[in-house]
């Protein structure tokens, strides 16, 4: 009798084990090949665009002050290395500070609103209202209030990045399986423990999709702040270059700006791999069955 039970057990464990080819973890030696497979399309596309750009300027179909050639842009980048680096540093500082403040504030507000229905009813309309106002229209006001230093740029960046963080943070905190919450209440856990061990981790996948949107918006916010009133930063460089009809420099600043956004996005992506590994492994699993 005991032997039949353990036989049945062994059989059931065997049959329920998933087949090895469904293992979502990629093997190490495949890693480079996987990246190549993933990214050859965008790389090829950018390469083709640059080629087209070069062709248009080399054939002089467009005047250089309207569209500088890739070589001119590259020269503007290299000849003004220190100048650009200094202003990039300023914009980076504003962006990162704004983004970090937006994360702290946004997550705090999301948590408060999820836990208090009346607070949500009070604050949500105001937050929505603040989101609907064009940020470019608020930026001059911030300059009047906070002067010409870093502060107004940081706060425009905060304002831009705040909304997606609040919305995704709230959606994430609400996404917890209600049965798990019933379960933790029978475990006698205090609300803080439940928050830390269940609600917060469960909210991370959604929060991170909001953070990715917010990261790119933070760069925009900082530059918009600089447009309104600044004597440093990439926004200032663009205004200067525009005044001098120095389109090569303008292009150089634009390229740096988008690189900054991409870099910030990539940092969030890497943080997501470390903090939400269960989500990442699921995604790779899905991708491998497609590819």
């Amino acid at each position: 009798m005991p032997s039949t039970v353990s036989d049945a057990r062994a059989v059931s464990v065997q049959s329920e084990r998933q087949s090895p080819d469904m293992d979502p973890r990629p093997r190490k030696n495949n890693f480079l090949a996987k990246w190549a497979a993933e990214f050859w399309r965008p790389v090829a596309f950018v390469f083709a665009l640059v080629l087209l750009w070069w062709l248009v300027t080399a054939q002089k179909w467009v005047a250089p002050f309207i569209l500088p050639s890739p070589q001119d842009t590259l020269r503007a980048l290299s000849e003004n290395g220190t100048y650009l680096a200094q202003h990039t540093g300023v914009t980076t500082l504003e962006t990162v500070l704004g983004f970090v403040i937006a994360i702290l504030l946004g997550e705090l507000v999301a948590v408060l609103m999820v836990y208090s229905r009346s607070l949500e009813k009070t604050m949500y309309p105001i937050i929505l209202f603040a989101q609907v106002i064009p940020k470019i229209a608020i930026a001059p006001l911030f300059v009047v209030w906070l002067g010409f230093g870093l502060e107004p740029k940081i706060w425009v960046a905060v304002l831009m990045a705040f909304f997606p963080i609040v919305v995704s943070g709230m959606a994430g905190l609400r996404s917890v399986d209600p049965e798990i919450l019933e379960l933790t209440s029978t475990m006698g856990a205090n609300p803080f423990k439940t928050f830390l061990k269940v609600r917060l981790p469960a909210s991370l996948p959604q929060l991170f999709s909001g953070l990715k949107v917010a990261a790119t918006l933070a760069v925009t916010g900082a530059v918009v702040g600089e447009f309104v009133g600044a004597n440093e930063g990439l926004g200032y460089v663009i205004l200067q270059a525009n005044g001098n009809i120095d389109t090569a420099m303008l292009f150089a600043a634009l390229i740096i700006m988008s690189l900054l956004g991409i870099l910030l996005f990539a940092i969030i992506q890497i943080a997501e791999w470390f903090l939400v590994p269960w989500q990442a492994s699921r995604r790779t699993g899905g991708a491998s069955t497609n590819g």
Partner: peptide, 18 residues
């Protein structure tokens, strides 16, 4: 109120995926 001295199993396993 919620009792600590019980164990609960739902239809869905309700596991934490992380």
């Amino acid at each position: 109120g919620p009792r600590r001295d019980i164990g609960y199993v739902f239809q869905r396993a309700a596991l934490l995926e992380w």
